[in-house]
Design a protein around this nucleic acid. Structure first.
Lengths: 137, 137
DNA sequence: CTTTCTGCAAACCCTTTGCAGAGAA
DNA sequence: TTCTCTGCAAAGGGTTTGCAGAAAG
C-alpha cells in the first residue's frame, strides 16, 4: 500500500494508515462523518478534515467511489471488481453489490446509439434490505 | 392539473402554475436555481423558496424525480414512462433518457436474490454528450 | 373562515479550504 | 531541505425552515 501510494506521489503517515485500514476493514459504505467517528476510537486527536481528505484520496487513486442517494450525505464505497451495481437500503444505508455484466452491454449500446461518450455507470436499486424488512415488522 | 392537485390536497396558485409550466415545458432536467432563473423572467417577484418547494411538490406527487451526480446540486427530471435510464452529460449536465426494459428484469432479479424489497431503480450512464464532444475539439 | 401558499431572511449542515506547524522522504 | 500532510477553525454554498401576511377554496 505504501508503495502503491508512493508511485502516485503520496506519502504514508500514521493517520493515513489508520484511516485506510479503518475504511477497508469496514464491510459497508461510510460517510466521512461515520469513518471519522470510527477512526477517532483509535486516535482521538485525528481531525475531521484529515479523514475527509483521505477519503477523497482513496477515490482519486481509484480504490473507492462516491455514492449519493440524495439525502445530502456523500458516502464512500470500496471499488472492487468493475463495474458493479448497488442494492441501496434506504433504511440502514448499507449497500450490497451485485454483478451487472448482463446489464453493461445494454447501457453501452444505449450510449452508442446517442453518440454519447461513456465514462462510467451508476446502477442502483433502492429499497429495503432483508434485515430492515424484518425490523419493521 | 388543477384537479389532479386538488385530489391530492393541494391548491393551485398563479405562482404554482407558472412554475409547473416552466418545469414541464423544459426538455431537460433543472436545478432549483435554474428553474428559479427561468421563472423569474416571467414573474420577477417570485421567491426562490417557492420554486424550491414546488419542485419538491412535483416530486411528491410523482411527476418528477431528483437526480444527483455528486456535484452537490440536486436536479429534477420529469418522470414520464417508468422506469427509464439516463445518459448524464458531465459537461452540460443535460440528461437523455433511454429505455431500460431489457435491464430492469436483471436488476429485479438481483434484488430478489438478496431478498431485497425493491423500491426503485436509478440507472445512469455518465459521460459526454454528442454536442459537448464537438465543443471540446 | 380555515388551510395552504408565498416571500424573505436566517438557519442548517455537510463539504471545502486557508494556514501555520509537523512530519515524511 | 523540500514537499506533502495534519488539525483547527472558518468559509462556502446549496438546501430547509420559521414566520407573518396573502390567497385559495
Amino acid at each position: 500500500m505504501k508503495e502503491f501510494l508512493r508511485t502516485k506521489g503520496f506519502k504514508m503517515t500514521p493517520q493515513r494508515e489508520l484511516i485506510f485500514r479503518a475504511f477497508f476493514e469496514l464491510e459497508r459504505n461510510v460517510s466521512a462523518e461515520e469513518l471519522y467517528e470510527k477512526v477517532k476510537e483509535k486516535d482521538s486527536s485525528i481531525g475531521f478534515s484529515t479523514v475527509w481528505r483521505n477519503l477523497k484520496l482513496i477515490c482519486k487513486v481509484g480504490l473507492a467511489q462516491e455514492i449519493n442517494i440524495g439525502d445530502g450525505i456523500t458516502r464512500y464505497d470500496r471499488l472492487t471488481k468493475v463495474p458493479h451495481g448497488y442494492l441501496f437500503c434506504l433504511s440502514c444505508k448499507k449497500t450490497i453489490e451485485f454483478n451487472v455484466d448482463q446489464v453493461v452491454g445494454v447501457l453501452a449500446q444505449a450510449a452508442t446509439d446517442h453518440k454519447f461518450k461513456n465514462k462510467g455507470f451508476k446502477i442502483e436499486v433502492q429499497g429495503y434490505c432483508k434485515d430492515c424488512q424484518k425490523k419493521k415488522k
